Amino acid sequence: MDDEPLAEWAERRDARVGQLRAVPLVTGGGPRASHLNPEAPRAIQRWNGHMWEPHGFAANLAEARRVLFPHAEAASAPETTTPRLDPGTGRHRKPPP
């Protein structure tokens, strides 16, 4: 049997401790995908190594993303020029006229 050593499993599990996730608060068995209800409030949960525990609250998807990815806005500077496709020979390219 190819069982993983317990030390490797524990190391992989402990690497996720502190990870955050946002769960939409919708009534009933409604959709849980974030893009379907962007204005729905979110519960921010934190992984403690054994279960997801309450960590915070966000009013909508945009606020939840700011909590989950605080450095993403600073790292993603808007691109000033649009990338141009170079001529190629791939199947998806149109042949030159």
Rank of each mutant, 00 (worst) to 15 (best):
Q19G: 05
G49R: 00
G29T: 12
R65W: 03
F57E: 04
A64R: 08
A10C: 04
P5G: 01
V26N: 14
A64T: 04
A22R: 08
A40I: 05
R91I: 07
S34C: 13
G18N: 02
H35S: 09
V23F: 08
P96S: 11
R93W: 14
V23W: 10
N60W: 10
N48W: 13
R12A: 15
R93N: 12
P83V: 05
R84A: 14
A33I: 13
E8N: 03
P83G: 05
L20D: 01
P96Q: 11
F57Q: 02
H55T: 00
A43N: 03
L6A: 14
H50L: 10
E39M: 04
G56P: 12
A75L: 08
R93F: 15
H50K: 14
M51C: 08
E63I: 10
A43I: 01
A15Q: 07
M51F: 07
A7H: 11
P41C: 04
V23T: 09
T80M: 02
T27K: 14
K94Y: 05
A10N: 12
A59S: 11
P38I: 07
P24M: 00
T82I: 09
A64Q: 05
R91K: 08
M1F: 12
S76D: 05
A77G: 01
P38Y: 06
A74H: 09
P97R: 15
T89P: 03
P31N: 15
G56Q: 10
E79L: 12
D86P: 05
A59I: 14
G56V: 11
V67S: 06
L36A: 12
E63Q: 15
R93P: 00
A58F: 01
R42C: 10
N48Q: 10
R21N: 07
G56E: 12
T80S: 00
M1T: 13
M1H: 14
T82Y: 10
F69Q: 00
D14Q: 13
G88Y: 04
R66N: 01
G88S: 15
E4I: 15
R16K: 14
T81Q: 08
R21H: 04
